[in-house]
Design a protein around this nucleic acid. Structure first.
Length: 218
DNA sequence: GCGACAG
DNA sequence: ATCTTGTCGC
């Protein structure tokens, strides 16, 4: 079964495709114990936005040492539309992930997973296409409501939408704005939160995204 | 019609 | 995301 599809489509068609693909996402825990190798991906733009640059890294756990890195560039073909981020970032992201030599047990994405209008954010899309257990860690909210998060590292409150828990608002550092965690593919919310905490010994964002970001910038 | 709106 | 330096606070 080949899941790959075209990236040359309209926003309207993209939304319809999300509705079709959402049913193929696995929500059971496909993790085989604590991940020993975790991949991270981050996207940036060059040439006035005409080129999308993706950086991927693989870190060993729990040491968080960099085991492998890869960078890929692709022409930017899709605009930024809230709710359709994956159509803009996946082409370059998939290319970077394919460039990795080291295999990974899990993938941490920079954006939402299940916490999405159609429950199919970037992390779900990338996880489905790569068959890698994945989660989304976003710096801000796309949808959902939540109570205040206690100001203590590790504290979290459910992110909800229409009575359903779609993610977790997690405090990775005391006195620092919380992050939005949601499952992507083959993950449970509890395990997703667990993984994020294992990747944030010191900073707000997961070490995977930080390493991918610095690799793509300086 | 008026906001909200991952990166 | 990106354009950009110093600066306030722990």
């Amino acid at each position: 079964m080949t899941l790959s599809h075209t990236w040359d489509l309209s926003p309207a068609k993209a939304r319809i495709l999300q509705e079709e693909l959402r049913g193929q996402v696995v929500h059971d825990d496909l993790t085989t114990g604590p991940p020993a190798r975790v991949a991270g991906i981050d996207i940036g733009f060059e040439r006035n936005g005409s080129v999308t640059r993706a950086a991927a890294v693989v870190l060993g756990c729990p040491g968080l040492d960099v085991l492998d890195t890869a960078i890929a560039r692709r022409p930017t073909r899709f605009p930024y539309v809230p709710g359709l981020l994956s159509f803009r970032e996946c082409p370059a992201a998939l290319a970077a992930l394919e460039g990795l030599t080291a295999s990974a047990d899990a993938l941490v994405c920079d954006g939402q997973g299940y916490a999405h209008p159609r429950r199919f954010g970037l992390a779900c899309h990338l996880g489905l296409l790569t068959s890698l257990p994945s989660i989304g860690v976003a710096k801000s909210r796309l949808i959902g409501v939540h109570e205040p998060v206690p100001d203590k590292k590790g504290a979290w409150v459910p992110l909800r939408d229409g009575g359903e828990t779609i993610g977790a608002v997690l405090r990775t550092r005391k006195r620092v704005k919380p992050v939005f965690v949601s499952v992507g593919y083959g993950f449970t919310l509890a395990r997703a939160v667990e993984l994020v905490l294992a990747l944030t010994p010191r900073y707000r964002l997961p070490e995977t995204t930080r390493q991918a970001h610095r690799l793509a910038s300086g």
